[in-house]
């Protein structure tokens, strides 16, 4: 599960749909791997405006990475600043959560992650 995906996943429990605390989910006991993949600049430029930067800073800190700058890079930065592009790529697309749990900050539900696959199946009373 890429950090990119963690920036979009929310708690699936019905009661959590309307609160802000159900995003981002908080990684717990996370085992990470770094999986090298080719840089896709146009993809990053495309998704950048949709990244919740505050949530990304939270996730990144919770995963044990150095604190991200307060402000997100701009599309221009990504076009011009090769280093910044690489760092963002490494964090969002190359860093994968393989094992652990994703915990909802509102209801406390824990979604297990095994071999990189998050289990979002819910018992029917939570749907």
């Amino acid at each position: 599960m890429k950090v990119l995906t963690l920036n979009f996943l929310t708690c699936a429990v019905k009661a959590c749909k309307t609160t802000n605390n159900s995003f981002p989910l908080h990684p717990k006991d996370a085992e990470l791997v770094h999986d090298e993949i080719e840089i896709n600049r146009d993809l990053l430029v495309n998704v950048l405006p949709r990244i919740d930067w505050t949530a990304l800073r939270t996730t990144s800190t919770e995963l044990g990475f150095p604190t991200l700058p307060e402000q997100p890079p701009t599309a221009e930065d990504l076009q011009q600043d090769e280093k910044m592009l690489k760092e963002l790529h490494a964090l969002l697309l190359e860093t994968q959560m393989m094992e652990g749990k994703l915990v909802c900050g509102h209801c406390g539900h824990e979604y297990a992650v095994r071999e990189g696959i998050a289990n979002f199946l819910l018992p029917s009373h939570l749907v």
């Binding site: 996943l9 929310t10 998050a118 979002f120 199946l121």
Partner: peptide, 11 residues
């Protein structure tokens, strides 16, 4: 691993 009949858990 998810049941689409339960929804789509993305913001």
């Amino acid at each position: 691993l998810a049941d689409i009949g339960q929804g789509v858990p993305f913001r």
